[in-house]
């Protein structure tokens, strides 16, 4: 087990709710610079799909140093377990003015259409997509655009390309060494680089080799997290870091009806990760399961914290 701190229950719940976590300036400058140097001389290796992460990259290489960085390793372990399979990686380069001029054109390339990676995916668990930015990304570089809370929508890859702008969309602007980890379903696309410099981003997709059940540090989980609180007519403010509130966070682009469905789907995913079907947040699933005996089962059952 890795020595660095694994994610907390609250952090995992936030990942379930938003579909991503971000870690600004996570990796040290020598790893970032080593990657750019290796990239510059074409030294980023190919990796056969399904290779264990521990065998994917040459020892001492920048990408081996990336995944073995204690904090990176702890994040990976918390979400997909130790030594997951590398599904694939890809080096994303977005041409700046200097590179465009070298290729004989001047207009910036348009942004990439919105898409979800891979194909229609209805699994209960998830693959982890790492997006790593080895240098500072400023606004005119067209940093990755992504849509918080989109990860549980079942769509077919580029079919969402019709949408141009969606309320709540984000553009990555970050210091060097920043890492985002995303649920595989996150809607995203590369931006248009209108600046002078090339933008680099490394994407690594990881498949869990173990059930994704309580891989994180769940020592912050308490009995109170399993208790229901007043909803709708709620006069008292919720505690900071209230687990139910984290899971039931709205997004500005959700339709008036679908945000409730998103909550239901998040709770189902969180139950899987928790290994406990008695969990509910703000009663969204209990209500639908009434009559199936769930409430009585949950009230009389024991649970492991």
């Amino acid at each position: 087990m890795n020595a660095a701190r694994r994610l907390s229950t609250r952090e995992v719940a936030r990942f379930v709710a938003r579909g991503f976590l971000e870690f600004p300036a996570l990796t040290p400058s020598d790893v970032n610079e080593q990657y750019l140097e290796e990239m510059g001389r074409g030294a980023i290796p190919e990796v056969a799909a399904g290779t264990p992460l521990s065998l994917a990259y040459p020892e001492g290489s920048a990408l081996a140093r990336l995944y073995s960085h204690p904090e990176v390793a702890a994040i990976i372990e918390s979400l997909v377990g130790a030594d997951p399979f590398v599904d694939h990686h890809f080096v994303h380069l977005t041409l700046g003015e200097a590179q465009r001029t070298g290729f004989g054109f001047t207009d910036p390339l348009p942004s990439q259409h919105w898409h979800q990676d891979s194909t229609i995916d209805t699994r209960q668990g998830f693959d982890l997509q790492i997006m790593w930015y080895p240098h500072e990304v400023v606004l005119d570089m067209g940093g990755t655009r992504f849509l918080p809370g989109s990860h549980l929508r079942i769509v077919s890859e580029a079919a969402i390309g019709r949408y141009q702008n969606i309320k709540g969309q984000r553009h990555v602007v970050c210091p060097a060494g920043t890492m985002l980890v995303l649920h595989h379903g996150m809607w995203h696309g590369g931006g248009s680089n209108v600046g002078p410099s090339m933008r680099h981003m490394v994407k690594i997709r990881l498949n869990a080799r173990v059930p994704q059940v309580r891989l994180w540090d769940d020592s912050d989980l308490t009995d109170k997290d399993f208790e229901q609180q007043p909803i709708f007519w709620a006069l008292q403010p919720r505690a900071d870091n209230d687990l139910h509130s984290i899971l039931c966070e709205n997004q500005p682009w959700y339709e008036a009806d679908t945000h409730r469905l998103e909550f239901v789907n998040r709770i189902r995913l969180f139950r899987y990760l928790l290994g406990d079907d008695s969990f509910d947040a703000d009663y969204w699933c209990s209500r639908l399961e009434f009559g199936a005996g769930r409430r009585n089962e949950a009230a009389s059952g024991t649970r492991e914290l």
């Binding site: 942004s111 141009q164 309320k167 696309g189």
Partner: peptide, 27 residues
């Protein structure tokens, strides 16, 4: 946000067939 035409806008796209304006995702 819902099926009523006066519901708030949550997403939008524009294409200009006159060629005067170029639009793209995230702009």
């Amino acid at each position: 946000a819902d099926s009523n035409l006066d519901a708030p806008t949550v997403a939008w796209s524009r294409w200009d067939g006159t060629g005067e304006r170029r639009t793209m995702a995230g702009d």
